[in-house]
Design a protein around this nucleic acid. Structure first.
Length: 594
RNA sequence: GCAUUCGUAGCUCAAUUGGAUAGAGCACCUGACUACGGAUCAGGAGGUUUGGGGUUCGAAUCCCUACGAGUGCACCA
């Protein structure tokens, strides 16, 4: 039995008995630490219904609870706030519940399928810092939804066709000289990125030359020979020209291998990958359907539109006058396809907030078309990542490459961790050490990017991101290592953990720790409902910090009273497991030793 | 210009969705190691929540307004 629910139902009973005929919505909040108690009930909203002063209502309900509730041990009323203390025996019962439940924090199966789309890169350049925020978010949200009881399908839509990849292809054809990832020692995605940059350089030079010769800039950008050739190449690709297609295939495969290496290094994967080269023609039959249903209308020039002014949006083109698709046409078709493939109850897109409007339009259209799944569509929109020096701009070369960043982060974390370990890792092999440092570096990076509310634009400070102290991944990882060390030591001392512990008197910090543990399922549910890894990050930090306070204030293995020792050791074990679970939801591993 | 998101300590972020005296970390200052792991803990200082109005028992949160920042407004993707 969840202790908070118990108190809430007891308050409802109190209201029913003390104020016959009245009822209210009861919601508890944690008590602020300067007051005594663990749960606070705010009585102000009841004053009108019950026609009594807030403090008096608090007093009445508090007294009733003390008399009749099995879990309430004390109460105090400050202004209209009723602060409730929970009996130590009830806390110990909570601990026993959690300790005996191997599935603690895994919510029951819901029998619903959620598809989470993230990463979704273009194949003309390597991944960068912005992609990392995207991927960590998508990966973490997938994990959170899974333990919330959903069947989760992680998916990635690879934008593998179009002008951008033709640019790399053309530059490669022109300047490549048969270079391969093997011959250059470059990862495939980096190699192709190199040619994309080369194209851009050569193209710009051409445009400048033409402008200097008197061509207007806009005109020059269209007419430049390189751009013409790219357009030609795109047409050849669309016609299935075998030479073009085989070049395209070769280069894209290099890129995929590069991406896969990056995904592997950060510990993510996809259940299903869609390629735009297969899906870019989808959606035209949806347009037909919309016309038939009268949802879309056709203009004289044969272009097809939808009027979304009723939704506060605009008129939107869904098919060009020449009958070809636009971006949103394709998305209409792909969304249908995803639903067809997996019977989704929900579809989530992890995509930057510059596409907010696009998704509003997409969802509105699908609702108009009467898609059953349309009410489960959600755009998990996130803000850009800025550098201390300002925005990342690819033109100015200030983009932070993902692979470089991961390597630098790991190196920086290694140096700092090696220093901090003060010889504790002496018996580690070089392999063990490097695995540990990788775990810490990646933990620092992921935690840094995930602890912030996704919606907000955030700043990435390279030095702070590898910090081991304070509100960081490694701080939390450290607490886990510490707990494991205590448990190893207990085993060496032949202390056997009993299945259940007995109630004794608890210290304030122990009550606080148990309170936090009991909150885990609720936080998990909230994180799932709001698609918010930041809630979990915040929680893990609070739990780790509170454990450190507990550890500093009270003895565990040195405790003379064997019953108290059992209780504390069990608490340590459960906190360690809960930290491991929480961090696992962020895609962060925790070490046995560090 | 229109739409939209945001503005909280010197810096980076919280604030359980309208609740108490707005909390953490970093940086700064002071204290705690014959240690169950000091990669830690305790304490100090730091705020007119961008400004102004409103709604109510109560506002960082909701409404209006001004200012500042981002993003979007293609028969591009």
């Amino acid at each position: 039995m969840d202790i908070q629910e118990k108190v809430e139902t007891d308050i409802l009973r109190a209201i029913a008995e003390c104020y016959p005929g009245q009822s209210a919505v009861v919601q508890l909040s944690p008590t602020k630490k300067e007051f005594e108690g663990q749960y606070t009930f705010v009585t102000f909203p009841l004053t009108k219904v019950l026609r009594q002063a807030p403090a008096q209502i608090g007093q009445t309900i508090g007294a009733w609870l003390l008399e009749n509730s099995a879990v309430v041990s004390a109460f105090n009323v400050v202004q209209g706030f009723l602060n409730i203390s929970i009996a130590d025996a009830a806390w110990v019962a909570v601990l026993n519940d959690i300790a005996g439940n191997p599935d603690f924090g895994t919510l029951p199966k819901k029998g619903e399928t959620v598809m989470v789309e993230f990463a979704s890169p273009n194949t003309n350049k390597p991944l960068h810092l912005g992609h990392l925020r995207n991927i960590f978010l998508g990966d973490s949200v997938s994990r959170i939804l899974k333990v919330n009881g959903y069947d989760v399908v992680k998916t990635c839509i690879v934008n593998d066709r179009g002008v951008h990849i033709c640019k790399s292809m053309l530059a490669y054809q022109r300047f490549g000289d048969g270079e391969t990832p093997g011959s250059s020692g470059l990862k495939g995605d980096h190699l192709i990125g190199k040619y994309y940059v080369l194209f851009d350089k050569a193209y710009k030079a051409q445009v400048e030359e033409m402008v200097a010769a008197g061509t207007p800039k806009e005109e020059a950008e269209k007419q430049a020979p390189l751009m013409q050739e790219v357009q030609q190449m795109l047409r050849q690709w669309e016609q299935g020209d075998s030479e073009t297609v085989s070049l395209w295939r070769k280069l894209n495969n290099w890129v995929y291998a590069g991406f896969d290496a990056t995904y592997k290094s950060i510990g993510t994967s996809f259940d299903k990958t869609y390629y735009e080269s297969n899906t870019y023609l989808l959606g035209k039959e949806v347009v037909e359907e919309g016309l038939q249903k009268g949802v879309f209308y056709k203009k004289e020039d044969n272009s097809v539109w939808i009027d979304l002014t009723a939704e506060g949006l605009d008129h939107k083109l869904v098919l060009r006058s020449d009958g070809t698709s636009v971006y949103i046409t394709q998305d209409l078709g792909t969304t249908d396809l995803k639903d067809h493939d997996f019977h989704t109850n929900r579809q989530i897109w992890v995509v930057g907030n510059e596409q907010d409007y696009h998704f509003n339009v997409l969802f509105a259209i699908l609702r108009r078309l009467g898609r059953e799944y349309s009410h489960g569509l959600y755009h998990l929109s996130y803000g850009m990542v800025d550098l201390p020096t300002g925005k990342m701009k690819s033109r100015e070369g200030t983009v932070v490459d993902a692979d470089d960043l991961i390597e630098e982060t790991t190196n920086a974390a290694s140096a700092a961790a090696d220093e901090a370990a003060k010889g504790k890792l002496d018996q580690f092999s070089e392999m063990e050490k490097s695995a540990l440092f990788q775990m810490l570096g990646l933990g620092a990076l992921k935690y840094y990017l995930l602890k912030v509310d996704p919606q907000k634009r955030m700043q990435f400070n390279p030095e702070e991101s590898v910090d081991l102290h304070g509100n960081t991944g490694p701080y939390i990882q450290y607490v886990h290592a510490r707990i494991r060390s205590i448990l190893r030591k207990a085993a060496e001392m032949d202390i056997v953990l009993s299945d259940t512990v007995e109630a004794g008197q608890l210290d304030e910090v122990e009550q606080q720790l148990l309170f936090l543990l009991s909150q885990y399922p609720q936080r998990l549910a909230e994180a799932g409902a709001d698609y918010a890894p930041s809630y979990i990050a915040q929680y893990a930090y609070e739990l780790a910090k509170t454990f450190n306070q507990f550890y500093d204030k009270l003895s565990i293995l040195k405790e003379a009273n064997p019953l108290t020792l059992q209780t504390r050791l069990t608490m340590a074990r459960v906190v360690g497991e809960t930290i491991q679970r929480s961090m696992g939801l962020l895609g962060i591993e925790v070490p046995e030793k560090m």
